[in-house]
Simulated assay, not measured.
Amino acid sequence: MWVRGIRGATTVQNNEENEILQAAVELMNELIVKNEVHPEDICSVFVTTTQDLTAAFPAKAIRQMPGWELVPLMCSLEIPVQPSLPKCIRFMVHVNTNKRQDEIHHIFLNEAQSLRPDIVKTE
């Protein structure tokens, strides 16, 4: 078994709490389904946002998901390199898995699909 990193990112249209929280849940749910992981498989989740998102901590939404209460989560700000994708939420999920690197599905939704088209798997 290895610890693998799973990347994920999404964007929102507005700096509003509900929109940020919904986007975080949508991204995490997609990551969970595509990679067949469960909360007990997760070592930790590192969440970043761009500096224009100040209405909510995306980790708050993940903590409220059933079974995720004990998963270590941390939020931080992205480095403000210009030009960067605005209103962006990024995840780095560290998971215990038997999957090889090439079996990991990195999830990029909305405008964040432009960040890493080289590692996004399409089905």
Score class of each variant (00 low, 15 high):
residue 113 Q to S: 10
residue 18 N to V: 00
residue 27 L to C: 01
residue 26 E to K: 15
residue 46 F to C: 11
residue 111 E to S: 06
residue 80 P to W: 01
residue 31 L to D: 03
residue 4 R to D: 06
residue 67 G to T: 09
residue 9 A to R: 01
residue 43 C to V: 14
residue 118 D to Y: 09
residue 50 T to K: 07
residue 100 R to A: 14
residue 100 R to C: 08
residue 103 E to W: 03
residue 60 K to S: 15
residue 107 I to W: 01
residue 15 N to I: 05
residue 89 I to R: 02
residue 62 I to G: 09
residue 73 L to E: 06
residue 14 N to G: 05
residue 84 S to L: 10
residue 107 I to S: 03
residue 48 T to S: 15
residue 64 Q to M: 14
residue 4 R to T: 11
residue 81 V to N: 05
residue 93 V to S: 08
residue 68 W to T: 00
residue 111 E to M: 00
residue 59 A to Q: 13
residue 52 D to S: 00
residue 99 K to G: 00
residue 107 I to F: 04
residue 75 C to G: 08
residue 81 V to E: 07
residue 35 N to I: 04
residue 120 V to G: 10
residue 102 D to V: 01
residue 75 C to I: 07
residue 73 L to H: 03
residue 120 V to E: 13
residue 113 Q to M: 14
residue 51 Q to Y: 12
residue 100 R to Q: 06
residue 18 N to T: 01
residue 89 I to W: 02
residue 90 R to V: 12
residue 98 N to F: 09
residue 112 A to F: 08
residue 103 E to Q: 10
residue 99 K to Y: 05
residue 58 P to G: 07
residue 71 V to S: 02
residue 91 F to P: 01
residue 99 K to S: 05
residue 123 E to Q: 08
residue 2 W to S: 04
residue 56 A to E: 13
residue 90 R to C: 14
residue 44 S to C: 11
residue 59 A to P: 00
residue 15 N to Y: 02
residue 33 V to Q: 06
residue 79 I to R: 10
residue 19 E to T: 08
residue 76 S to D: 11
residue 54 T to R: 14
residue 10 T to K: 03
residue 18 N to A: 14
residue 77 L to T: 09
residue 15 N to D: 14
residue 25 V to F: 03
residue 37 V to T: 07
residue 119 I to M: 06
residue 34 K to T: 13
